[in-house]
Simulated assay, not measured.
Amino acid sequence: MTKLSVIVPVLNEVASLPELCDHLMFLSCQGAEVIVVDGGSEDGSADLIERMGFQLIRAPRGRALQMNVGAAAASGEVLLFLHADTRLPPSALQLVDGQVKSALAWGRFDVVIEGRSAMLKVIAWLMNRRSRITGIATGDQAQFMTRAAFDAVGGFPQQPLMEDIEISCRLRRLVPPICLTDRVHTSGRRWEQRGLWRTIFLMWRLRWAYWRGVPASQLAKAYR
């Protein structure tokens, strides 16, 4: 089996860490190298992760930067970038290993968004459908890629937003993505806290602006 490194950027995730650590322990027991990159948590997240025995790297805040730092420390031939509130399906490592056939392969999973609103199922369906049509993946879909593909595009761009979209665009120029229909489960807290329709319109507006060339630093202010 190809060695796979799971890289998890975290920031102030202490409330969800017990569940996350259980999930990472399961992946570790399956043979994955697990690297957690803390971006300066102030709630004790980093200390708890270390006490749980996981490899922890401290890095400056910023998801793209944290993932790049984790990738630099990883020894796997395949890198999988996992958000702290996303859970992989039980057979994820075997699925990725079975699909990665070329040196520049990359891909993502379909996603389920968990939450109270039934509308989250529609949002997830639209995300998966759009991703399959456009070849663009989001971080919520657990992006994975070979080390060679990651290096070929220079890793994640050093920008505060849309780093997942940008790396997808760059990878797509190399080869089309592997679109796994097996689903990861991610939290819908962001959608529910901000309001479903408000979040939908905001994300579409930001993506449209990004395609038109508006700098990610400017979009990040609107996102916050």
Results as ranks from 00 to 15, higher is better:
L196P: 04
Q159N: 12
L104R: 09
G154D: 06
Q66K: 14
M127K: 14
D47I: 01
R224T: 08
K221T: 14
R129I: 11
A118G: 12
I165R: 12
P60Q: 03
E19D: 09
I35D: 04
R172D: 12
I49A: 08
P215D: 00
R183P: 02
D97A: 15
R173S: 10
A15L: 08
E163Y: 07
Q99N: 13
V111E: 03
F156S: 10
A64G: 07
D182C: 02
R130D: 13
E33T: 07
K101Q: 14
G31L: 13
S131N: 08
I113H: 01
G107R: 08
L11P: 00
V112A: 06
G76Y: 05
L126P: 00
L20P: 10
F81H: 05
Q159P: 11
D110R: 13
F81C: 04
D47V: 04
E166A: 14
M203W: 06
Q55D: 04
A15V: 12
L65K: 10
R207M: 06
E114C: 07
I49P: 04
S41E: 15
L174H: 08
A220F: 03
M67A: 09
D43R: 05
N68D: 14
V37Y: 07
A15K: 08
F26I: 15
W211F: 08
N68W: 09
V111D: 01
G39C: 05
L219M: 03
R172E: 10
L82V: 14
T181S: 15
L65Q: 12
V78N: 05
G39K: 06
G188P: 03
L4Y: 02
K221F: 13
A46E: 01
L161Q: 04
L202S: 06
G39E: 06
C169D: 15
P157V: 10
E77I: 06
P157C: 11
N68Y: 09
L24H: 08
P89E: 13
D164G: 02
A72V: 14
Q55H: 09
A118F: 06
G31M: 13
Q55S: 10
R172T: 01
V175R: 14
R190D: 15
A209C: 09
G188Y: 01
G98P: 02
V6M: 10
E163D: 12
V10Q: 08
P177C: 06
S41W: 15
L206Y: 09
G40D: 06
R189L: 11
V36N: 01
V36D: 05
Q99P: 04
D47H: 00
A32E: 00
M119L: 07
D164W: 00
A148P: 05
G62Q: 02
N128V: 02
C179Y: 03
C21Q: 09
F109K: 01
V14K: 15
V175N: 12
E166Q: 13
S41N: 15
G213M: 14
V111G: 00
R172C: 10
L104V: 12
Q99E: 14
L82R: 04
N128H: 01
I133K: 11
V184S: 02
A46W: 01
W204T: 10
E19P: 01
S131L: 03
A15R: 08
A152R: 12
K101S: 14
I136E: 08
R130V: 12
T186H: 05
R132M: 06
E192L: 04
W211H: 09
P160N: 11
E192K: 04
V10P: 03
